[in-house]
Design a protein around this nucleic acid. Structure first.
Length: 446
RNA sequence: GUGGAUGUAGCUCAGCUGGUUAGAGCGCUAGAUUGUGGUUCUAGAGGUCGUCGGUUCGACCCCGAUCUUCCACCCCA
């Protein structure tokens, strides 16, 4: 058989994984510093946990797992005959793979309500799966890094999450723009335009403003059945630009005012604490997932052609679907794959990331190999990543191997070294070498 | 889910209107060089031309299906 992978998935070579781990390490350390604790959840969830949480589009992209055993005996024959895929699937599959980290977290909070104290601040770095059509930077298996806090409505958490975005991207060296908006402001604008019922249609359309322009948005609004009159009011509002002028226009609409006040409050928390990146109020920002009800965030790289590097927002009631109502929360997510691609494209990974052992031992003959084995053990005991070429012989071959696996040093053992209980340590980058004792080598390499 | 491209050596790619032994560069292996790699030189290995089927005397080339990757939508990280 031919070796191959399912579409949209990939293997990682050591050189890539070293870089990924560096990136995840920075993200995790910032999460930890802000007081978040790690959790993990299983790959598989009950399909009932997942379906209906991401809209119709999301349900379509959900990976389902076939039931075990004689699943056909319990299959819905009628649904099969009438080619009703949804109904049939439900009869042969009761589990699916997680689509994001937020819904499993909601399930987790409800199930462990007696073991956690609110507000509960958690982070989670795990892969998720979507049966999307792959493209560059879009995979069917990819990692998300989520931080959420549940059990508090304090807007200081929104401000804190902005700081987390800011700190992570500062440490990674990617200049970004953090955009903020509020769902209530959007629904308020729709009310002001007299199309309160269609606020989601409006939101989806104006989200594309920077991409398709005003004409394109108007066209889409018309297609979604929104009148010219309403469109006029919407664009009047969008033209407002900053918070204070919008406040004047929103007067009398409680919904829009709530949104504007919240955004203003987040800005005020950060007033005296300068960010490294820019935080921008963007009234056209929408965000897809249906469960956001308050502030929403999105992060975009300033000088890279890349979709959003992360997003998030506040939800009034994340856990209601699992039977525990009115638990508010707010959280953000980092899109690891896209961030990695930006780091790669801009060559922002540190050059000195060690992928192989620090030193490789090379021996000339069997006696030297035996002595080298003892030397390697001594170095390893001292905590130095060291390795021994498996057989003695030509130095050329052993040098090449050291280069290939990314060693910084090679230690050569021959007759003379055995006699004097030393090793010849060569710095592969500079080419300089010294014959020194094992203890000296340990001191130099640690 | 819709529309469009793509696939030839480990990698990047040539390959004539269909014609018999499918090429290059890099990489790989060995030697030049029996205590010193990344340079140079020489030789060598490596391909069921994505897969399956069809048309043809003959297919890498034409046709169909399928898979992969990529692009634009949709949606999203």
């Amino acid at each position: 058989m031919k070796a191959g992978l399912p579409k949209g998935t990939r293997d990682f070579l050591p050189a890539e994984l070293v870089k990924r781990k560096w990136m995840f390490g920075i993200i995790e350390e910032v999460f930890r510093t802000y007081g978040y604790v790690p959790i993990e959840t299983p790959v598989l969830e009950n399909l009932s946990t997942l379906t209906g949480k991401y809209g119709e589009e999301g349900d379509r992209l959900l990976f389902k797992v076939l039931n075990n055993g004689d699943y056909l005996t319990k299959a819905d024959e009628e649904a099969f005959q009438s080619k009703d895929s949804r109904k049939f699937t439900a009869s042969v599959s009761k589990r699916g793979m997680r689509y994001d980290l937020t819904v499993p977290f909601a399930r987790y909070v409800v199930m462990h309500r007696n073991d956690i104290s609110l507000p509960f601040k958690r982070y989670q770095i795990q892969p998720v799966w979507r049966a999307d059509r792959p493209q560059k930077g879009r995979y069917q298996e990819f990692y998300q890094c989520d931080v959420d806090v549940v059990g508090s409505t304090s807007l200081s958490y929104e401000a804190e999450l902005v700081q987390i975005y800011d700190e992570v991207f500062k440490q990674l060296g990617i200049p970004v723009e953090i955009r903020i908006n509020h769902r209530k402001l959007l629904s308020g604008i729709a009310q002001i335009a007299g199309i309160g019922e269609q606020w989601i249609d409006m939101t989806v359309a104006i989200d594309k403003l920077d991409k398709i322009g005003e004409e394109g948005v108007r066209k889409e609004l018309t297609e979604r059945g929104i009148s010219e009159e309403a469109q006029k009011r919407i664009f009047e509002f969008l033209a407002g630009g900053d918070i204070s002028s919008m406040r004047a226009m929103a007067k009398g609409n409680e919904e829009a005012m709530t949104g504007l006040e919240a955004i203003d409050k987040v800005f005020s928390y950060l007033e005296s604490l300068p960010l490294h990146n820019t935080l921008k109020f963007d009234v056209t920002l929408a965000r897809g997932l249906g469960y956001y009800t308050g502030c929403i965030f999105e992060v975009a790289a300033l000088d890279a052609e890349m979709g959003s590097l992360g997003g998030g927002g506040r939800y009034d009631d994340l856990t209601g679907a699992f039977g525990w109502s009115d638990v508010p929360g707010v959280g953000i997510s980092f899109g690891a794959e896209r961030i990695y691609d930006v780091l790669e494209a801009k060559e922002l990974f540190p050059a000195n990331l060690q992928k192989g052992p620090k030193v490789l031992f090379a021996a000339f003959d069997d006696d030297a190999h035996a002595f080298a084995f003892a030397c390697v053990s001594a170095l390893r005991k001292a905590g130095i990543a060291a390795d021994l070429y498996p057989e003695p012989g030509k130095l050329k071959k052993q040098f090449k191997y050291a280069d290939d696996i990314g060693c910084a040093y090679i230690a050569i053992i021959g007759e003379e070294e055995i006699k004097s209980r030393t090793l010849t340590l060569k710095d592969l980058a500079s080419g300089s070498q010294d014959t020194i004792s094992i203890q000296e080598a340990i001191d130099r390499l640690s």
